[in-house]
Deep mutational scan, measured.
Amino acid sequence: MIVFVRFNSSHGFPVEVDSDTSIFQLKEVVAKRQGVPADQLRVIFAGKELRNDWTVQNCDLDQQSIVHIVQRPWRKGQEMNATGGDDPRNAAGGCEREPQSLTRVDLSSSVLPGDSVGLAVILHTDSRKDSPPAGSPAGRSIYNSFYVYCKGPCQRVQPGKLRVQCSTCRQATLTLTQGPSCWDDVLIPNRMSGECQSPHCPGTSAEFFFKCGAHPTSDKETSVALHLIATNSRNITCITCTDVRSPVLVFQCNSRHVICLDCFHLYCVTRLNDRQFVHDPQLGYSLPCVAGCPNSLIKELHHFRILGEEQYNRYQQYGAEECVLQMGGVLCPRPGCGAGLLPEPDQRKVTCEGGNGLGCGFAFCRECKEAYHEGECSAVFEASGTTTQAYRVDERAAEQARWEAASKETIKKTTKPCPRCHVPVEKNGGCMHMKCPQPQCRLEWCWNCGCEWNRVCMGDHWFDV
């Protein structure tokens, strides 16, 4: 396979590697080409510095992935760790964990309700045991953590790749202090920090972006993250068709209702045909949960890209028209025109101005929308079919299609509260000796007794199943 190397943020060049090629071997190839010592090179990928003893497969490097290699003399205490030698983080029983690669970060837990604080980093599902597709590297999971809308060759929703760059020099040479644990960490600028490894760059702020994971991409090709779309790892039924499908869209209502993408497309087109989208002054033209839940309008309007190009163009047109109407304007009634106009409040005669090729020149009556006339309008008909009709959803289907309910059931079956801080902690095999993952707590306690870890627990039921 081919990976592209950008040395000291210059133009990239291809390097041929195998899945079992080590990072140090990659350094040696680059060092020979650039005429520099291999031990002064640092390989940066997806916000993480890659260790010498890791392989291309370990690092989730795919065909035509772009890695950054910078030349920086080692500072005291760094060289041993980078070589894969006596790194205290690798000691058996050590409590410190390697910062998780962005290629394996899962933010789907952050669609849980606000009262489930902490689960994004504490609760991990076991539903990723799908067998890898044919042709994928051994052991590589097909679980997708992110979804994007690819405006490039795909023109559809695709699995996405999370990447990070330095907000100062805009190069992907920043190593994160810690990985993101929720969508806010990724979507809110300057929320996460790190250290830029580019020479002479003092940058410390992280800037995240997404790429389409279905095809090789260049540095400049980015895609918009659709953070309401998630892999259906909890096997929730769709609120409309009641099938279990994946991926799904999880509405931001209190129940976190789930809808499959085909039904979401149908829901949007139906509402669009009836012009029953909601115009929100802050958000724009949007839709609420299909069950009509309060405070559930979709905030990231790129989710409506699921409509496809033709329907999305209609959505944008109707949204612009609705904006004009909300501002007190009118639409030209001549067939084939429909231009938005903003006449004076007491102006009865409205002319669709033909300047700049935008208007048709038609003069019409503001009251009856017919060709302009003197005197009273002959008839004014009330528009028919403008009443909002509820999208029919079966109550039982709505009850079963809740992301929140599956989460709470998982928590109930696989977790116990920490005796000190009461945060839910998952036990997935292993011994009875637990350690609270909350940095402010870190209590060592017994899963069996529910009390602080002691010699009695150690001698009596340390390794009970």
Score class of each variant (00 low, 15 high):
residue 2 I to M: 12
residue 2 I to R: 13
residue 7 F to M: 06
residue 9 S to L: 04
residue 15 V to Y: 03
residue 20 D to K: 08
residue 21 T to H: 05
residue 23 I to F: 02
residue 26 L to W: 00
residue 30 V to T: 03
residue 33 R to I: 06
residue 37 P to F: 05
residue 39 D to G: 06
residue 41 L to C: 04
residue 43 V to L: 06
residue 45 F to M: 05
residue 55 T to K: 08
residue 55 T to R: 07
residue 55 T to V: 06
residue 56 V to N: 00
residue 60 D to I: 06
residue 63 Q to C: 10
residue 63 Q to E: 14
residue 65 S to K: 05
residue 75 R to F: 13
residue 76 K to Y: 13
residue 76 K to M: 15
residue 76 K to G: 14
residue 84 G to K: 11
residue 86 D to W: 13
residue 90 N to I: 12
residue 92 A to W: 14
residue 97 R to T: 13
residue 100 Q to M: 11
residue 100 Q to V: 10
residue 103 T to V: 08
residue 106 D to P: 11
residue 108 S to V: 09
residue 109 S to T: 10
residue 111 V to E: 14
residue 112 L to F: 11
residue 114 G to K: 14
residue 124 H to G: 14
residue 129 K to L: 12
residue 130 D to P: 11
residue 131 S to R: 09
residue 135 G to E: 14
residue 141 S to K: 14
residue 146 F to W: 05
residue 147 Y to S: 02
residue 149 Y to H: 05
residue 152 G to M: 10
residue 154 C to E: 01
residue 166 C to H: 00
residue 167 S to M: 08
residue 182 C to L: 04
residue 184 D to S: 09
residue 187 L to I: 08
residue 189 P to E: 07
residue 193 S to P: 08
residue 194 G to S: 06
residue 196 C to T: 01
residue 198 S to R: 08
residue 198 S to D: 10
residue 199 P to R: 07
residue 199 P to E: 10
residue 200 H to N: 14
residue 204 T to W: 04
residue 211 K to C: 14
residue 219 D to C: 08
residue 222 T to W: 07
residue 222 T to G: 08
residue 227 H to N: 15
residue 233 S to Q: 11
residue 239 I to L: 06
residue 242 T to C: 15
residue 242 T to V: 07
residue 242 T to L: 14
residue 247 P to N: 03
residue 249 L to H: 02
residue 255 S to Q: 11
residue 258 V to D: 02
residue 259 I to Y: 01
residue 260 C to R: 00
residue 261 L to I: 10
residue 265 H to L: 07
residue 270 T to W: 04
residue 271 R to Y: 06
residue 273 N to L: 04
residue 276 Q to A: 15
residue 277 F to W: 10
residue 278 V to E: 10
residue 284 G to R: 04
residue 285 Y to I: 05
residue 290 V to D: 01
residue 298 I to M: 06
residue 299 K to L: 05
residue 305 R to S: 10
residue 306 I to D: 00
residue 310 E to N: 06
residue 316 Q to D: 11
residue 316 Q to M: 12
residue 317 Q to V: 07
residue 323 C to T: 14
residue 330 V to H: 05
residue 332 C to S: 03
residue 333 P to Q: 03
residue 334 R to I: 12
residue 338 G to W: 05
residue 340 G to R: 06
residue 343 P to G: 07
residue 343 P to F: 06
residue 346 D to C: 08
residue 353 E to M: 08
residue 356 N to D: 13
residue 361 G to C: 05
residue 363 A to H: 13
residue 369 K to R: 06
residue 371 A to V: 10
residue 375 G to R: 07
residue 382 E to K: 14
residue 397 A to S: 12
residue 398 A to G: 07
residue 399 E to I: 12
residue 400 Q to A: 14
residue 406 A to F: 11
residue 419 P to F: 04
residue 419 P to M: 05
residue 419 P to W: 03
residue 426 E to G: 09
residue 427 K to S: 08
residue 432 M to Q: 05
residue 438 Q to D: 04
residue 447 W to S: 07
residue 449 C to F: 01
residue 450 G to M: 03
residue 452 E to W: 15
residue 454 N to K: 06
residue 455 R to E: 15
residue 457 C to Y: 01
residue 461 H to T: 01
residue 463 F to K: 00
residue 464 D to A: 15
residue 464 D to W: 03
